[in-house]
Design a protein around this nucleic acid. Structure first.
Lengths: 357, 357
DNA sequence: CATATATTGGAAAGCGCTTTCCAAACTTTG
DNA sequence: CAAAGTTTGGAAAGCGCTTTCCAATATATG
């Protein structure tokens, strides 16, 4: 239906080969006058190359697949933004899939497997796995990706992965969490609760391990470790559970026993959960940071407009996205595959040195 | 490189045609035993259909293009989430492009035109334009999309569009803004400032028009209308400018002339700007809603965890994404193309009835 | 000026599928 | 049981490009 190269060639009075060489970047460049004629014909007819046909002929698609967990989560959308940027730079289009959406082809398939299979079917030049890896990879996923890699596909995972042949961009989840907890300890905190998120996901587990290690090193035991969903609601729910378990209430605060203990410090496995936690605290009439303190992880860009500012560990998310895409798209690029971060103390926790309990 | 259908066919001892019929949904279904043999062979070899080749042969790609402004903006990521959901339901993959990223093929091309051309090149079955339309459409865009539509492509734009042949999902920007301003007037507000955003974008302009109309109907004139960028920083900057122009300072408040006028109410063209505005107010030591009030537009999901709660006009963003995708992907679907919203009063503005100035 | 060497445009063979015909093998029916 | 109808599998023609050869022409060399 659309105008095709053969029509352009006919209109310009040249062969298909020549037209192709003029319009779609070949090593050989036809003479100037011919070239001009072809371009004019293409312009006049409104020719747009069929990327599918080109993909078939060139056996490279110019596509890169990105699988996130939830594109509406600022963590993933920041990464996606970075991926897009670099993809554009390498003249690639990005195919997006979210694993939080049900309904793969076969019901037994996990959403991630379905997404990866779709990408493989489209023969994307590379696949970026931004959704957190599981403690146990689905063997079907590994097999599918293994074959994909053998066939020349490139796979980049965020965080260490057991998928054979995949590159991984390591994130300082454990170290960052330890640093963050360490910084808080240094500010005098001793009473911690951890909103652990989904422990089957490496991201959550590593962060929790980092928190735990730093606390253990200081001889501190967390008062509670509550697993939950990796989103705002998860943080909210886990926080309420936590408050109930520990018997923390605003009334208790209001009736103010002056010798009361130092405020609880909630360590959330990510910022989104931390924000949910703050909402839960407010719903119970608890003040932040006075009554309870909160820290997150990631430093998602939207934190900028939250008050009180959330103490967190900064990951350069957009840059991570760019780097992942570079790793995926630049076959012989020289780039480290490590990533630095830093503790960011804001008002929500550890901003002021705590007085002794 | 990857295993292809012909290999599966050979392994199963059948023809290409039969293998194709078994594996890739055809009207004709080969006999059970043959079918079983083919499936076994495919499974054993790890066959994954080449979607590019299928696209070429079937002349339909199973792709839908989504162009947003900034995928990291909660407004767009919420819409993208909805689009993805419906796309998956229709067994389509989504190709994502963001117009906030520079670097199209030709420098003269706008990012949106570049994205659309890329989608057309990939022969996506449909294109969803989520980024706000401009007051004046780029004629090259209209031409390209017009041709695309003639060739059987479907185009859905969010908000009215001048692109011939495109469907549009109309959003209650003007009405919603008028309703919101009306609700605020009803609460006793009289002193308004408008953070207008980029007036060349219909979304911003329509909302500002809605605000203006409601105010005019009540005989109120806004104290300031400040254009700016459609993001947090834009809201921040515009707010500071506004405060300086109107001479509003925390000191003025602190020195408390009791007969001072009612608090200024800032109407932002969207929530993200409103959040930036609140940050700006805080940076000047102004309290919300006591000293200055703020209202936004959209009710982005992340508002959930902001405090004070932002008064806004709710647009069902995710649903809008789903509907847009449905419009794009369901050729003979029966669905309205209008969208309702509602005023949501929270603490940031109009929550309590203002006392007379 | 004849021969060797670049340069250039075109014919045709794929890239991996789908789908239209066809012919062969079965079923039905009078 | 023959004639007509119905399934079923396969051969082959595309889908719209790229790219390898080739042949033809233009340029450089002794």
């Amino acid at each position: 239906m659309a105008v095709k190269l053969s029509e352009v060639a006919r209109q310009a009075g040249v062969s298909l080969a020549t037209a192709s060489r003029v319009l779609n970047g070949s090593a050989r460049t036809p003479a100037a006058d011919i070239s001009h004629r072809v371009k004019a014909a293409a312009e006049e007819l409104g020719y747009v190359a069929n990327a599918q046909a080109q993909a078939l002929a060139r056996s490279t698609t110019g596509l890169v697949g990105l699988v996130v967990h939830d594109i509406a989560d600022p963590y993933f959308s920041a990464i996606a933004h970075g991926v897009q940027e670099t993809a554009l730079h390498y003249r690639h289009q990005v195919l997006l899939a979210g694993t939080d959406i049900a309904g793969g082809a076969e019901p037994a398939e996990s959403a991630e497997l379905a997404a990866v299979n779709a990408f493989i079917s489209y023969r994307t030049d590379a696949i970026i796995l931004a959704a957190s890896r599981l403690a146990d990879e689905d063997p079907r996923l590994s097999r599918a990706l293994g074959r994909y890699i053998e066939n020349g596909g490139r796979v980049v995972a965020l965080g260490a992965t057991a998928i054979p042949g995949a590159q991984s961009l390591s994130l300082p989840n454990k170290e960052g969490a330890a640093d963050l907890a360490g910084a808080l300890l240094k500010q005098g905190h001793t009473r911690f609760a951890v909103l652990a998120g989904p422990l089957e996901r490496n991201t959550a587990r590593h962060r929790v391990e980092g928190f735990a290690r730093a606390l253990a090193d200081a001889g501190v035991e967390p008062l509670a470790v509550v697993p939950g969903a990796f989103n705002s609601q998860g943080g909210f729910d886990a926080t309420l559970e936590c408050l109930d378990t520990l018997g923390i209430t605003a009334v208790g605060r209001a009736t103010g026993n002056h010798a009361r203990s130092a405020p609880l410090c909630i360590l959330a496995a990510n910022d989104v959960m931390a924000l949910g936690a703050m909402t839960a605290l407010r719903s119970r009439g608890l003040r932040i940071p006075r009554d309870v303190q909160v820290a997150g992880f990631d430093d998602i860009p939207t934190l900028r407009d939250h008050s009180p500012g959330l103490t967190t560990y900064r990951l350069p998310l957009e840059h991570i996205g760019r780097l992942a895409a570079e790793l995926a798209l630049d076959p012989d690029g020289k780039h480290g595959n490590g990533m630095g971060g830093e503790v960011v103390l804001r008002e929500s926790a550890g901003a002021a040195r705590l007085e002794g309990a």
